[in-house]
């Protein structure tokens, strides 16, 4: 564990907490894409299939449980909670997530390190995580009215990806045989998707104005 990896995990954790805070205390999920949250739930479910069979550390297992639990509970809140679900922007959040899942599954079947059930699903989770933010970014673009918590949530998620890239660079130079092309390319694509959002986020921060995306 290096400082970049820890910083990445902590920003990831913070992003989830910000979202849960919004849903729990304000009882609102306005501006949050259910499609993206469902995709994250699938990402964690397919990636952490090894939770019972492979043990790395208490930290790892605990974090996996947190990400699994939080992603599924966020989906539950948005779909079934009597007040929260009424604040969901159903009509704007129309991204077809099948269009993301099928290509990711096909790509995982074609490009992977080993052709085994767990390995292909693990690779699928990497590809899917790379594009899972897209419905959220589309919704953001459509609603235009971005509250602070939603903006911070996406900012923290992007920060998490940035720190992971630094972590990979650090590990590549400090650990022998640390080469993971699939993880790196999927991670890089994912981080690049945030570039546009980051640009406007910093612009609004610099000018001390509310975050607003161009139409």
């Amino acid at each position: 564990m290096n400082i970049f990896r820890l910083a990445g995990d902590m920003t990831h954790l913070a992003s989830v907490l910000v979202l849960l805070l919004k849903i729990h205390t304000i009882k609102s999920c306005a501006g949050v894409s259910l499609k993206t949250q469902e995709l994250y739930a699938i990402v964690f479910a397919t990636r952490y299939l090894d939770i019972l069979t492979s043990f790395v550390s208490i930290y790892n297992t605990l974090m996996k449980l947190i990400f699994l639990g939080s992603s599924f509970s966020i989906v539950w809140y948005m779909k079934y909670h009597k007040t929260v679900r009424r604040t969901y922007d159903r009509d704007q959040d129309t991204f077809r997530h099948w269009f993301l899942m099928l290509p990711c599954l096909l790509l995982a079947l074609l490009i992977h390190e080993k052709f085994t059930f767990f390995e292909v699903l693990w690779t699928f989770s990497l590809y899917l995580e790379a594009v899972a933010i897209l419905p959220q970014l589309v919704l953001l673009q459509r609603t235009r009215n971005i509250d602070n918590l939603t903006g911070q949530y996406i900012f923290l998620l992007g920060g998490y990806r940035g720190f992971y890239i630094l972590n990979w660079i650090y590990r590549y130079f400090t650990e022998p045989h640390y080469v993971h092309w699939i993880t790196w390319i999927a991670g890089l694509v994912q981080t690049l998707l945030y570039a546009d959002f980051f640009y406007y986020y910093f612009l609004s921060w610099k000018n001390n104005k509310k975050l607003q995306l161009p139409a």
């Binding site: 990896r5 995990d9 990831h12 090894d50 069979t53 492979s54 790395v56 550390s57 790892n60 974090m63 996996k64 990400f67 085994t116 767990f118 693990w122 992971y164 972590n167 045989h177 640390y178 993971h180 993880t183």
Partner: peptide
């Protein structure tokens, strides 16, 4: 072993 040792990231 199902997963190799380097799959220690989240």
């Amino acid at each position: 072993k199902l997963f190799d040792d380097t799959k220690d990231e989240l």
